[in-house]
Design a binder for these strands. Structure first.
Length: 482
RNA sequence: GGCCCCAUCGUCUAACGGUUAGGACACGGCUCUUUCAAGGCCGGAGCACGGGUUCGAUUCCCGUUGGGGCCGCCA
């Protein structure tokens, strides 16, 4: 439309975003939500989503965890356009950047030992003051610094923070200011040559031409460091968007301590990836209107940071389970069957029976695991009967009534064995015995399924078939009778 | 302790100065019914507090309180 619109489009390249987990644990739901927002943002803005593994912490990073994170992302459908890139393979880049900053006087060597720093920190604490690095290294001349380095003295590289307020324009939080005296000259490179988090992040974000940094709120306080670093590196400052934390029910940052903080734990609990994706997307973002169940396409089309809230959100497993049930309700039977069979002990009944069982139990289960259990009950006779059910529904004359029921049911041919006709037979039997149908229905359910709750009895009877139904009835009578 | 962020039902959220403050989960009731669900209907439940600004504040500003985060040669 207008000149300025086309101009701004021309001057802002397509966005590049990244998700940068460190393999020090499995994929956390908070991390997954961050990745998901990056993905949605990239799709919506026709940008590029990059995956970068931040494995510079040699003590804590573990290779197998990278594999776990990758597979959890794949399972959830968090697909990236570029990467994964590994920071551990990019040390040359960090070394070159550090040398450049040193040369340009934007960073300097500091020769304090960890023990000395520890002592300073403790002293500050004892004095009730906030600890700041003294800046001693800054006052060493570059000649002397060079000389000591060449002499083999150990040193770290620190950034010379400018003495000015740093302003962060956050897409979600607005303008946030950090006074200069709250920041000190933080360490870029360890004495063993390892680049540290803040440094490798910024060097990579510059190198990968990241335009928008969407990450957790816990990084907001780190952002002035990053801004200073981007400036020192002579790079443009990306846009920032800091997401509210995901909390446990105790309103503390969600962690393993809360149980089920990892994506794979939910996977193993029978949560469908689509459901978790949908649920996580709505933890902080609302599409507007009253919609809750959205397709991936809708989310990719409608996601916008403007509609992302700033406040933290509590992760509610109950609602996740509800959402899972919503997805189960709509899933094609074949697919639901395929997802449930792995959880059916013994593989469940033949496919035609299984498919009908799926429809019977679909509204009654919330996970494929529960569905698997239901399927298994059609293939194997009950191994035990619910104790409370026996007590409640088995009376002295129950066995006799069930025997009468069996006799009459035997009169039905295989072809006549339907829900309607078996029901009719049961009701006739009850009437003949002068009792209500319930007196027979409940013990029959117990006999056929072992429990007192479940799908409509006569549908179950029909599905089980004549032979199995009668066998289970007989067994029940023998095991519970006089 | 210093700095920073956040604040609508128990929970997730809608509202972008004027609404009987809407929806969803959970909860309770009714309905359906052989049980349990699912579904449908109904209900209880919220603008943290105090000052401003304004004709008018849930909404804007300041403060208080409460919660959270960051302050490493961790990420």
């Amino acid at each position: 439309m207008s000149d300025s619109a086309s101009l701004s489009t021309a001057s802002s390249p397509s966005p590049r975003v990244r998700f940068a987990p460190s393999p020090t644990g499995s994929l956390h739901v908070g991390g997954a939500r961050t990745a998901l927002y990056n993905l949605l943002f990239a799709r919506r803005e026709k940008g590029t989503f990059i995956l970068r593994i931040e494995d510079t912490d040699v003590e804590r990073s573990r290779e197998e965890l990278t594999g776990q994170i990758l597979s959890a992302m794949e399972w959830l459908g968090l697909d990236y356009d570029e990467g994964p890139f590994y920071q551990s393979r990019r040390y040359d880049l960090y070394r070159a950047a550090a040398e450049r900053l040193l040369r340009e006087g934007k960073a300097y060597r500091a020769f304090e030992t960890p023990e000395e720093l520890d002592a300073e920190r403790r002293a500050a604490e004892a004095a009730g003051k906030a600890y700041r690095y003294s800046g001693a290294g800054r006052r060493i001349s570059s000649e002397e610094s060079e000389r000591r380095a060449r002499a083999g003295e150990r040193f770290v590289v620190r950034l010379a923070m400018p003495a000015e307020t740093i302003v962060v324009e956050d897409l979600i939080r607005g303008r946030v200011e950090f006074p200069a005296d709250a920041l000190d000259d933080f360490v870029l490179v360890r004495s063993d040559g390892h680049p540290l988090y803040h440094f490798s992040v910024c060097v990579d974000d510059v190198d990968m031409r990241i335009t928008d940094i969407i990450r957790g709120d816990d990084h907001l306080a780190n952002t002035p460091k990053h801004v200073a670093l981007f400036r020192a590196l002579g790079a443009p400052i990306p846009r920032f968007a800091h997401l509210g934390m995901i909390l446990g029910t105790d309103r503390k940052k969600l962690s393993k301590r809360h149980g089920a903080a990892a994506v794979e734990e939910w996977r193993d609990a029978g949560i469908l990836p689509e459901a978790l994706f949908n649920f996580l997307a709505l933890l902080g973002w609302a599409p507007g209107g009253d919609r809750e169940i959205l397709t991936r396409e809708e989310m990719e089309r409608e996601f916008s940071l403007e509609r992302v809230g700033a406040s933290p959100s509590v992760f509610d497993p109950e609602k996740l389970l509800w959402m899972n049930a919503q997805y189960i309700a709509k899933m094609p039977a074949e697919e639901l069957l395929a997802r449930s069979v792995p959880f059916a002990a013994g593989g469940g009944p033949p496919k035609d029976v299984a498919l009908r069982a799926i429809e019977l139990h679909r509204p009654r289960v919330r996970t494929p695991i529960e569905m698997g259990r239901a399927l298994a009950s059609y293939a194997a006779d009950p191994s035990a009967y619910e104790a409370d059910g026996l007590k409640k529904h088995v009376k002295p004359d129950t066995a006799g009534q069930l025997e009468a029921l069996e006799r009459r049911l035997e009169g039905l041919s295989e072809a006549e064995w339907t829900a309607a006709s078996t029901e009719a037979v049961l009701r006739e039997t009850a009437e003949a015995a002068g009792v209500s149908a319930g007196k027979l229905i409940h013990p029959t359910r117990l006999a056929l399924t072992g429990v007192t709750v479940g799908a409509p009895l006569f549908d179950v009877v029909a599905l089980l078939g004549k032979e199995t139904s009668l066998r289970r009835l007989r067994t029940f009578r023998q095991r519970t009778g006089p």
